[in-house]
Each structure stands twice: as structure tokens, then as C-alpha cells.
Design a protein around this nucleic acid. Structure first.
Lengths: 362, 362
DNA sequence: CTGAAAGCGCTTACAG
DNA sequence: CTGAAAGCGCTTACAG
């Protein structure tokens, strides 16, 4: 048995002092495993990285010793040698906390049993240093990949930057912006069309829409789908009933108030997301009116909040957590496996609760 | 000028091929800075790490060259040499998404302009592998430190584990569990007492409390404070009006229904957190009753949701984001600086909105 | 105050 | 299928 370390002058007693971690017991390394298995560290490395170039027998022997000693390779050392860390970044500017937390959960579901960690990188597209900060983040941390929910996902120049930096990415968006292996697509237009059909079939004609910011592609998609749905019923979205919000609660309140206090008050409002829908609820109530008796409200996303407000909100469900899972799965798969596979996509579906009813006869 | 690299046989033209990152331009390293500044790499290292053992003149020269070339040391290489990464972990089991997202924001506020990254580590205290997973996370990733919101923060054996692993930690809790340098303390009892005083002064006598799970110290603190507040007004919390929830919306609905359909219906409910308060709203409405006309509801936390429900909720505000900031600041400060400083603490304050009113005369 | 040597724990590139 | 050498980009430990 080759028991000699590289420093043959060190006795077994003097070695541990060098190898003890801060306050911990001596940490086992690839060298220990190699010595115990009577192979080179390179072979251990091959086993760790699942290289096919290892004899079955050798592989099993090494694996057994790894398991026996509970050895796990050091992520920092691997990162340095690989020039790539074991981190997955989530880069986001979405203002809805529910959206953010659900997506995190989805990603974490997939990362849970891997050696990858989720690192958060919030940002502001309006900041001048927006891209530079992301560039610094990626070139410093060298994550395996990044996951981009809207609206960050919609920025093509950002995608090019990741490409140049050799960083994998998955874009979650309502438009097919990239190769299938880099996309999780949501059919927002179809979801919005369902909302339109629902309101139209309840008998509404005075229908308003509070859409998200123009900088979000989803805002355009949802509006377009909504218009298409109305058209099927011979209706159209009037300009005076089309208001731009910011996907935030406060903007929902303000936009809904604009509609409520206009000369021609609509009987139904479809909002670009649930946050704004809850804002609309607030405005309706402040005005002494009721949902849905006086004004019907339909949201988008089906965040947990939608079922918790009163009346429970009719909204279009986007499976955000599952989308996060899908994005993380795409990132972790080998390029070979996902090549040729079709696009991963999700079609939202309307969840009918109690915030939309037939308009009062007036 | 010493222009020779270590491989003097390489010409300037052949070097870049070795030093190019995946798809990127040649990356500048500590060796380049050392060569350009005409000092050893060790001296550059000293400047990076702000060692006082560098002559002012030398320091400035090196700093200028670092700035000129936009050099930033490689975090993975530093982590390997330091045996400590540039990550900050947030280890949490709090079921409230709003709480989680607000705390993340607070932490990120502080980490934003540093070289530290926030890594998420959700967990389940009920799982058998709970501690083992955290142990693996910490010993693998070697974060600079971890931030522990309740209820993870309340586990003393966990704190000991971090100590043994040589990992810094900050515990956010409603009880003084640790040294001031490792604690962000919240005076939950005082906040709950304010809720009690408020309800008592409105004239309520039949007052119920839906508290959080017994595994959360905050649940005990809030209940104790609430009882103390009631006592000041000659009131006491009756056992039949004391129900244990799980800090979740659903448990709030169930517990409130138990109270509503009991023989003796209370006129006011104080819940251990806002999630459960919103659940109580739901139960009240399902029963055909109104908040606050039939039953007053007071929450705890003042998450964004509290102001968005109808009627806007009276609740006890805990500055969660600021608590996250405080915890991150504690973690990043040098041990010397924070030693001797007093305990960082936050006292919650009641926010009076519209969900609590005087009970109807019956 | 400064530097040359050795090392952190892995992988790449090369050779057999 | 396997291994010895060199290297990833930093810091520690030691010497001056």
C-alpha cells in the first residue's frame, strides 16, 4: 500500500495540523480517496465527473471508498479548475413578490438534490449600470447558468452578453425569443383570450384593461390576446378603457380609479397581473362600489393572494413554480439531451372564482 | 520594466491563447497587476485585502493600476485559498412568502455593493435530514456566514453546529438567545401587548388569539405579550379562545372557523401573523359576517398584504426588511468593530387601520 | 514594509 | 483505461 504522502519527512502525527479546517475535523480530499483506492487522483476525478473512461471495477471500488468516507469534492476547488462555479443565478426585476418567491421555489425544487446553489441577483432595468452590474456578476461568479424571468428575459442584448461570456441561460417569456433549449415559453395571449371570452360570455360590453408597462413583452402579449378574445365575440377594446399600469398594487389602484371616475365607467376590468387586480379591488371599494356587483375584476397569474382576497378572484393561472422547475431543469441537462427536443411551454388557464359576474341591468 | 512572465519562451502573441476564458477576452490576474506595478503578487494581495503592511506609496501605485485595468480578484480562487467563500446563506423555514421576500431584500440591500452573494437555503425542521442538509451546505459552500430568521434561528443545537464549523451566523429572534454580535432581537411581546391594549380600549372583552406553532418562540412571545397587555386592562385570555395555527393562511381559516362556530363567539381575534389574519378575514366572510362590524381582526408583521386587503388591516408592524439589513450588516462587520456594542433590536408598533372597531352592543 | 516558495483541492492537456 | 505534470488564481507561513 502506498502510504507515503508527497512530504515523506512528515509523520502521521504532524500532518493533521496542516489539514484541519477552522475548528473542524481533518477534511478528506481527493488525495485521500486516491491513496485509499490505490489509484491516481485523476482516476478519482474521472469517477466524480462520471467519465466513461474508467474500468467498471475501478469505478466501483472508488465509489465505495467515496461513500464509506462521505467524501464530497470541494466546490471552490472544482470551480477554480473548471473556471465555472456551481451556482445558478436568478436575475430578476419582476416587482411582484409572489411571482419571485414562487419562481425561487420552483428553481430550488430542482436544485435541492444537486450540488448547485441558487444565487439571487435582483436588478433595475432603468438603472444606467444595469447591464454592467450583471456583467460583473456573471464574469466574477461564473455561474453554470442564469435563469431570466420577464422582463429581464426579454432583453436580447442581455442574452448576447451571456453568450459572449460563455454563460448558459434560460429565458422565461411570453414570446419565442430564442432556441428551444434556452426558452420556457408561456402562451400569455391565449390566457388573456380566455379572460376576454369569460367576460364577454357573462354579458359585459363595457370592458376595460389595465395593462402592464410597455417594457414588458408580456404586457403586449396579454393585451393582444385579450383583444383577440373580445373580437371573437364581436367586441373591441376601446382606447378610453385601456390604461397602462406598472404591474404594482399602487398602479392598480390609480388606474382603476381613473376608469371608475371617468364619464363612462366600465362594468368589467381585466388587469395584466394579480397585484394590479388587488389594487383595482381597493379602488372599487374606496369608491363605495362592490366587486363583482358593480364592477367585475379579472386578474392574471393566480398568485396565492388571488384566492385569499374577498371575493376570491377570478384570474388566469400561470404555473410559476412549475415554470421555475422547467427552467432549472433545462439548465442542468446536458446540451446533447435537450437538443432536438421541442419547446417547453405552458398555457395558462382561467380559474373562475367570484370576482366576475354578469353586469347589473341598468 | 520586468516584462518577462514566468514562461520566457512564450511571446506576447502566444500567451493569450492560454489565458482566454470561454468566449471571453483574456482575463487579467493578480500576476498581471504585480508585473505592471513592479511588485510581487503578495504585495498586490496585501493591497486587495487592505493589509496595513504596505507602504502608502506602493499601495497607491497598485490601486491605480488595479483601477486602470478594472481588475477584480477571482472569488473562486480566493475562496479556495481562504478556505471560505464569498457567499452569505439565508437558511429559512418561514412559511410566509412575504416575510421571506422582505428579508431577502433587506439582506440584498447590504450585500449589493460588496463582493458577497446571497445563497438561498430553505429547509424543513420536521424532516429527519434537516440538520444534516444544513451541515452539508455549510461545510461544502463554506459561506462567510449565515442569516437565520425564525424559527431556524431558535434552534440552539444549530447555532452550536455553526460554531463548530467555524461559520459566522446571525440569529433573528424574539428572545435574546446569543451574544449581541450574533443577534437581531425583536420585541414581539411588546408589539402583541400593544394589540391587546388597542382591542381592550375599543371595549372588547371576548377576545380570541390564534397563535403560531409551538415550535416557534415568536408564538410564545406574542401570546405572552398579548396576555400581559390584556391583564393591564383587567382582562385575561380564555383557554377556549386560544387556538394554535401554523402561521399559514389555511390554518388561519380553520382556526377562525373554530372560533366563529363555537357556542361563545369572540368579538375580536388577534392572530400571530398576517397570513393567518387574512385567513380569519376569509372565515368571517364565509360565515356571512363582516370585519370589523361583527368581528375585529388584528394581525402581526404588517406585510404588504395587510394594507391591500379590505378593510385595510390593523396589524403590528415588524420592519422585516430593516431586520434583514441589520443582520447582514452584523455579518459583514469586523468582529472588533461590533464587540462591545449593544444588542441590535427592533420594537414593533401597532399600525391602526380599519379591521378593528368597537364591538356591537348586544 | 516586501517577496519567494509552497499550498488550497481540484481539472486540463498530454502521454502512454 | 490510467497517471504524472502543470496549472486554475489566489493566500498562508516563513524569511528577510
Amino acid at each position: 500500500m502506498a502510504r507515503g504522502g508527497k512530504k515523506t519527512t512528515n509523520t502521521a502525527e504532524t500532518l493533521p495540523a496542516n489539514t484541519r479546517a477552522l475548528g473542524g475535523r481533518a477534511k478528506i480530499t481527493i488525495n485521500d480517496i486516491a491513496r485509499l483506492a490505490n489509484v491516481s487522483k485523476k482516476t478519482v476525478s474521472r469517477v466524480i465527473n462520471e467519465s466513461p473512461l474508467v474500468r467498471q471495477e475501478t469505478r466501483e471500488k472508488v465509489k465505495a471508498i467515496i461513500a464509506e468516507h462521505g467524501y464530497a469534492p470541494d466546490p471552490q476547488a472544482r470551480a477554480l479548475a473548471f473556471r465555472r462555479s456551481f451556482l445558478v443565478g436568478m436575475i430578476y426585476d419582476n416587482p411582484s413578490p409572489q411571482y419571485v418567491v414562487n419562481m425561487q421555489r420552483g428553481i430550488l425544487d430542482v436544485l435541492a438534490d444537486t450540488s448547485f446553489q441558487l444565487v439571487l441577483h435582483p436588478c433595475e432595468r432603468s438603472e444606467a449600470t444595469f447591464k454592467q452590474k450583471i456583467h460583473t456578476f456573471v464574469s466574477q461568479q461564473k455561474p453554470l447558468g442564469v435563469i431570466l424571468p420577464p422582463s429581464v428575459s426579454e432583453d436580447d442584448t442581455l442574452a448576447e452578453m451571456f453568450e459572449e461570456l460563455g454563460c448558459e441561460y434560460v429565458r422565461i417569456a411570453s414570446v419565442e425569443l430564442d432556441a428551444p433549449s434556452r426558452m420556457v415559453r408561456t402562451h400569455d395571449a391565449e390566457g388573456a383570450a380566455q379572460a376576454a371570452r369569460h367576460l364577454a360570455s357573462l354579458g359585459h360590453e363595457k370592458i376595460a384593461h389595465i395593462h402592464g408597462p410597455k417594457t414588458f413583452r408580456s404586457a403586449h402579449e396579454r393585451m393582444a390576446g385579450f383583444k383577440a378574445g373580445l373580437k371573437e365575440h364581436g367586441l373591441s377594446l376601446r382606447k378610453k378603457w385601456t390604461v397602462e399600469g406598472a404591474y404594482t398594487f399602487d398602479s392598480g389602484v390609480q388606474c382603476a380609479e381613473k376608469l371608475i371616475y371617468s364619464d363612462a365607467r366600465p362594468t368589467a376590468i381585466f388587469t395584466g397581473n394579480d397585484e394590479m387586480a388587488v389594487g383595482a379591488y381597493q379602488a372599487v371599494r374606496k369608491a363605495g362600489l362592490r366587486v363583482p356587483d358593480d364592477i367585475s375584476v379579472v386578474g392574471f397569474d393566480d398568485t396565492p393572494m388571488a384566492a385569499r382576497v374577498w371575493p376570491p378572484m377570478t384570474t388566469v393561472r400561470l404555473p410559476i413554480r412549475e415554470m421555475g422547475q422547467a427552467a432549472a431543469s433545462l439548465l442542468l441537462k446536458e446540451p446533447v439531451e435537450k437538443a432536438g427536443s421541442e419547446l417547453v411551454s405552458f398555457t395558462p388557464e382561467i380559474v373562475v372564482r367570484e370576482s366576475a359576474a354578469s353586469p347589473a341591468k341598468s
